[in-house]
């Protein structure tokens, strides 16, 4: 999916969070959005997801203005925290995936995705019995359920141990090599060994966009 942002300025009430952000990435690109806590990274993602309402002609998804864009199912999103999800009530991994599936995905390809992300053995498990790292993988599988053209991951490795971080980026690199456009938000680009093609760094709402000459060169 092509994502184009033209001079986007966005704020809540009187506080400006994003100032004049612009960038363009093409299908198959891998963008890292880097910045400190509170720099506006998640706000930018919420704009791309259509959650934050913005004026016309600022964001284009596959050349369609986001204010007219309808098919957000093309975007797979893994949120930073899973606070929005109501835990405790028993539900299995399979049941979550079943209700999250709105594109025709065969049972086999569902199992294939579960296997690729490394949680095939957990499919009948109640999510309340899973560890943080396992749960995160469930949400990645959920994001992949509708065959997304764009995958957005918000700080995916916060609170995950070193070993799991390495295997997580290995999985993400594999997904990228299959042609999915990926936007990954992180405040610690050094820990990631991902094949980024572009980097957008945000400092106090001001942004700098850079295309890397060689994938993953800065890392």
């Amino acid at each position: 999916m092509r994502v184009t942002i033209n001079n986007l300025t966005f704020g809540y009430d009187y506080r400006t969070v994003l100032k004049d952000v612009s960038f363009k990435i093409n299908t198959g690109d891998f963008l890292a959005i880097v910045g400190n806590n509170g720099s506006g990274k998640s706000t930018l993602v919420k704009c791309i997801l259509g959650i934050n309402k913005i004026p016309a002609k600022r964001i284009f998804l596959d050349d369609v203005d986001i204010t007219e864009y309808k098919n957000f199912r093309n975007i797979g999103y893994v949120p930073q925290k899973f606070d929005d999800f109501n835990y405790e009530f028993p539900i299995t991994v399979n049941e979550i995936l079943q209700v999250s599936r709105y594109t025709k995905v065969s049972e086999d390809s569902k199992l294939e995705i579960l296997d690729k992300i490394g949680i095939l053995h957990l499919q009948h498990e109640n999510i309340n019995n899973l560890s943080g790292g396992q749960l995160q993988r469930v949400f990645i599988v959920r994001a992949l359920m509708n065959k997304p053209k764009l995958l957005i991951l918000d700080e995916p490795t916060v609170g995950v141990d070193r070993e799991n971080v390495i295997s997580f980026y290995k999985t993400i690199n594999e997904l990228h090599s299959e042609g999915i456009t990926i936007i990954l938000i992180t405040h610690n680009i050094k820990e990631s060994n991902a094949n980024f093609t572009h980097i957008l760094s945000i400092v106090n709402g001001e942004s700098m966009f850079k295309e890397l000459e060689e994938a993953g060169e800065m890392v």
Binding site: G50, I51, I75, P79, D84, N86, I91, I96, S100
Partner: peptide
């Protein structure tokens, strides 16, 4: 089910 468990995600699914 999806609205009850995860309203934000349901919104994203349209």
């Amino acid at each position: 089910v999806i609205i009850s468990f995860d309203e934000a995600y349901a919104k994203l699914l349209g």
